[in-house]
Amino acid sequence: MTSKEALYHYVLKMGDSSLIMGHRLSEWTAHGPVLEHDIALTNIALDYIGQARMLLTYAGELEGKGRSEDDLAYWRDAAQYRNSLLCELPNGDFGQTVVKMFLFDAFQVELHEALSQSPDEQLKAIAIKSLKESKYHLRYSRDWVLRLGDGTEESKIRIANGLEAVWMYFGDLFAPSEGESVLVSDGIVPETASLRKRVEETLRKTFEEATMAVPDFDAVMQEGSQRGIHTEYLSYILSEMQSVTRMHPGATW
């Protein structure tokens, strides 16, 4: 595999993850708990989708087949999507949403931090811009893990259940994209698995501070996203997201 092909797969993993994460968060818009948090969740959804647009546009360029951000978003099926499994999980209650965001954001901060040094100019530029956002996202989701984890009896139970529901998808965040080793040996990206220690540290500290049980980092994890094997949820997300566009092939909007 050429470096360019490998980078296409790598950027696709990032772009798809941001898109699906943004899609799930946008389900809260107009239904958010308290107006202020409706606004905050929508803000973060806007950031994720903004990142997805930059990344998918870049992926299309790398692929070199003339596919636009919309071609990639709307005209691929679940088996061609490369988002991390965590992103496609249902929102559940606000506690589950927040803890899912927290795992993702902790990973994103490390990833964007590392990619800010990439010799690939475009990836570097996207990472620098995204890092500011992911730091803010992490502050938001981390604060809520603390509040809910160390809040009322009810919120403790809810967030613990939320964590329990999403935990087995944590490991898949670190699954290497197709051909990642080529990029690693060329020094373009870090080995994704190498980010794991630092992410786990963020998690451990936060869960301890939140007086929550720290989950088992050696637990058996689900995987498969980088081979196109997803949860049952993704195809529902896509059939909803793509429904209008696919009814009208060739139309402009």
Binding site: H31, P33, F94
Partner: peptide, 16 residues
């Protein structure tokens, strides 16, 4: 429904 979801969240934030 949204207000109901908001209540336990606000309660938790206040307790914290």
């Amino acid at each position: 429904n949204a207000e109901r979801e908001g209540q336990w969240v606000l309660d938790a934030a206040a307790a914290y």
